[in-house]
């Protein structure tokens, strides 16, 4: 796996009309320039007319700035902006399914406790662990679990919210 240059990862939040096709319109602005979207979260906002879209992507800041400007022009985009760790909090969620043996179970449970994650499903051979944290937290825990047999992993993508009185 390529190591990510963290300084080049950008988190952009969009408030968009809750209408068919909006996701494609926004995605096209990225795709047209050959930009890959690393993660994407779309869900309704407090006002059901609008959805919140959070996108993380890697790339040259100037080009991403252009992408934000182009996306802001879309009629269905109410607002768009980039957020940094200073002005906003960010969390991600991860579900991991791990295969365990009688010997490995105790070690896994110890890690679960250490990383304040929780087991949300368990059977004779597997457990599903859920973790909510920063991207770094999740990356770290993922590395730990890779020492065991990970059957599958799903991450939600990053959610951000601006700190203080201002809205995102």
């Amino acid at each position: 796996m390529k190591t990510k240059d963290k300084s080049n990862i950008h988190t952009i939040s969009f408030l968009v009309a809750n209408k068919p096709g909006v996701l494609v319109r926004v995605a096209l602005v990225f795709a047209r320039r050959g930009y890959n979207i690393d993660s994407l979260v779309v869900s309704p906002s407090l006002n059901e007319k609008f959805s919140r879209m959070t996108i993380t992507a890697q790339g040259d800041p100037e080009i991403l700035d252009q992408i934000i400007k182009q996306a802001s022009k879309l009629v269905d985009v109410i607002c768009a902006g980039e957020h940094s760790e200073e002005d906003a909090v960010a969390r991600e969620m991860m579900l991991v399914k791990v295969k365990y043996t009688s010997t490995s179970k105790a070690i896994i449970l110890k890690q679960v406790k250490k990383y304040q994650t929780s087991i949300i499903d368990e059977d004779d051979n597997t457990i599903i662990i859920s973790q909510i944290g920063t991207t770094d937290d999740l990356d770290e825990f993922e590395e730990i679990l890779k020492k065991h047999v990970v059957i599958e992993m799903v991450r939600s993508g990053k959610l951000v919210m601006v700190k203080g009185q201002e809205s995102t």
């Binding site: 068919p20 096709g21 494609v24 319109r25 047209r32 879309l74 009629v75």
Partner: peptide
Amino acid sequence: MFGCTLPFVKHSYL
């Protein structure tokens, strides 16, 4: 048409 013209329109409706 909604889909295929997305990159070419200022806006579109179905």
